[in-house]
Every structure is written in C-alpha cells, then in structure tokens.
Design a protein around this nucleic acid. Structure first.
Lengths: 205, 205
DNA sequence: TAGATTGTTAATCGATTAACAATC
DNA sequence: TAGATTGTTAATCGATTAACAATC
C-alpha cells in the first residue's frame, strides 16, 4: 500500500484536469477537485505538495502546470514500449484499447502459440511466442501485458523474469507475484463479484 | 472505503481455498492464508470473525465450511442475470470471459447500436440497444456491464438509472458516479499508467 | 499435559481531515 | 482592506498488527 492510493488519485486528477483544460479552464482550486473526487480539499493540497506541485495562495493551481507535473511524475512523458502476450479476445481487445493509444505507450508486438493467430505482417505484428525473447531483447522491452489462459500464466511469468522485464499487467485470474517483476493484477471476475456483493448488501438509506 | 478492501481480501481467500480444496486439503490455518496474501494472521482471523466464519481453537478452519460461508456472503449462491452494453472488442472479450462463466452469473444479452453487430439468434443474443428496456424489464435485470465508447457512456447510465438497474461494472475510461446505481469503475488505462509509475519509481533495494 | 491455534483486546500505524496562519 | 485560498500542523479516524488468554 503506502502511497498506492495517491497514484490512483493523481490519475483521477489528471483525467479531470484534461477535461477542464479542453473546455478552456485555466485555473482550478483544491475545493473543485475535492468535490469531484469526493475527498477533502486538504488531501488534494497534500497530494500536490507531496509531488512538488505548487499553487498560488489566492489563484489556485494552474491546470497546465499541474498536468505537466503529473505527467512527469507518472513517467508518461517518456516512451514506453510494451508487448501483449496472448492474442485471444482479451489480448485483441487490449490491442485496440483506446486508453493505450495515447501518451507514450507503444505496443510493439503481440504473441500467441496458436498458428492461426500469427500475423507477422500486421501493423502491430502477432508473432509466435517462441520469438518473445528475440523481440524483448531487440526492443529492450520492460513492460508486458499478460492475457493468456490461466494455465499458461506461470510459464509466461518465468520467461518474463528471465528476460528482465520490469512490469507486468496481469489479466489472468491468477494472483501473480514475483520477486523480480512488479505485477499489477487486474481481476475482472473479482470486480464483478465485488459489485454483486455491493448490490446484495447495499444499505438502503 | 470502509470495509472495501475486506471484500477483495475475501475474494482472494476464496481463490486460494478453491485451489487448496482441489488438491485435497481439508483444513487451513490463518497463518497459511496470511502468508499467501501477505497480511497478518490476526487480520485473517478478524476478517473471518467479521463475517461469522468460525474456526476450531486447535484445528484451524474447515475449507469447505469457509468456502460455503464466503459464497453466501458474496451472494454468488444466487443467480445473477447480467447484460453487456457494447458489442465491441471489450464487450465481446467479456462475453467470452472465463471468469464470468462460473458461479451464478448468467449473461442474458448483449446490446449495440451497430446493425452489423446484431445477432438475435446467437446463443447469447446481440440486440439493438433500442430493445434494452424490454429485455431489462422482462428479465428483471439488476446488473449491467458497460463497454461502450466514452461518448455513449453517460447516455447509457441515464437509461440504466431509469430502468432501475442496481449495479454497473464500467469499463469506459469515464469515472462514472450515480445516486441510484452502484458503479464499479475498472479503468484499464489507469492500471497501466499506475504500473508505469511503479517501475519508473521503483526503490531498488 | 504440552503445544498450537483461535478469538479478541489493546497498541500501533498510516491515511485523511480539520483548522488556521500565511499571503496574495 | 477584506476575502479567499494555499501550505502545513495537529487531531481524528480507521485499518492493521501485536499480544495473549482461552481452549482444544
């Protein structure tokens, strides 16, 4: 945990600020952001101070400045090359996911072990998984998205560890951990079950 | 927040217990689960007590009993009928998502406004979105998965509110809120950016 | 019995909020 | 100036852990 939630808040601030900017806003107050994210204004100011984002005592925060700083903090100013492992439905959905098309994110290749899925001539090529080491080394790739069937997940993780990959976004239902790789587990099944719990136990006030 | 994290832990306990059961285990100790989830044994015991799951002072917890209780708490013993709005790549990936095939989850229909995507004869039919009200009322549906383009998200939410839907699992990049509906926002772009932050700022200890 | 594990209370820890002086 | 907002400290709140009596 630590300041884990802070980063998610930062991402939310960013989304709001991008929208505000697009409708011509220039300044924003901690109060506005607090309302929108349902936290206290103190927390917004504290978050900003934590990352060295400074406001003006009277004029609030300059949206442009805050956005630049947030992008710098998040590291999205730099190019990030990623690969997707698994060209099944989830892999393909992620390949075309609009949220990955922005910022510095560049999908280099997709991998699968099904010959039918291979397409080395595509704009973003789909290679057989046996070429994974070559491509990762050639492009010095540090990030991988894992969208394979559950029974292939551990094997992929081992390969990625050996190849020196630094981060994995894991869409399999296996809760993966690694000493060498930072893993972010996205468990869609759990998200649905959590929602089911919430509507079942909703406090009807 | 509140006990929000507690439910996610419960889902993780469940996943571990299912695996333990499948390899023939009968009992489990708070210590084992604590190691696996990287929390303290006290917390495991506290979580269980909170939901009325009792162990034996010497013999730990009966896996079968705990699983039944967890499923009861999560409400997955009951049938849950859901619809998916949006038959694009994400919608289709979710339609075939293995994690949704289990438990009491039943996907009734998919909706889209693109005539090319309509397929009313499929095993899980894809209807034009104009039939959304009919189907929701007919099947008394309380859960919807939102997988539409960003610009259609707010309109869908309004419709779902009017139709009395109780919960929405939102895959659009818009952070949705509602007075009437419990919304669980799954922002895949944010998850990737969070991972990028983590590998950029990793403390190399 | 001795040993081990639960159930539960008290202590700790960290995150969030309230409050307010500084200042534009 | 008066009013409003930041920056920051102290207070609060809640979640987690430590500790240990109860007990099998």
């Amino acid at each position: 945990m630590g300041n884990g939630n802070r980063i998610y808040r930062l991402l939310n601030y960013k989304n709001i600020l991008v929208r505000l900017k697009s409708i011509g806003f220039v300044k924003v107050f901690s109060d506005n952001l607090a309302d929108s994210l349902e936290v206290s204004p103190s927390l917004v100011r504290k978050d900003f101070r934590e990352f060295g984002i400074r406001g003006a005592q009277k004029g609030g925060y300059q949206i442009e400045t805050v956005l630049e700083k947030i992008n710098e903090i998040l590291g999205v100013n730099k190019k990030h090359k990623i690969v997707i492992i698994g060209a099944g439905r989830i892999g393909q959905a992620l390949l075309n996911f609009p949220g990955f098309k922005k910022d510095g994110i560049q999908i280099i290749a997709v991998f699968d072990n099904d010959p039918e899925k291979i397409n080395e001539e595509a704009e973003i090529p789909v290679y057989h998984v046996k070429y994974l080491p070559d491509i990762i080394r050639k492009h010095n790739i540090r990030l991988a998205i894992l969208a394979v069937p559950e029974n292939a997940a551990l094997g992929c993780m081992e390969a990625l560890e050996l190849l020196g990959v630094k981060g994995v976004l894991n869409f399999t239902s296996l809760n993966l951990k690694s000493e060498k790789i930072i893993v972010n587990n996205v468990n869609i099944g759990n998200e649905l079950e959590n929602l089911i719990f919430s509507i079942t136990n909703k406090n009807t006030d």
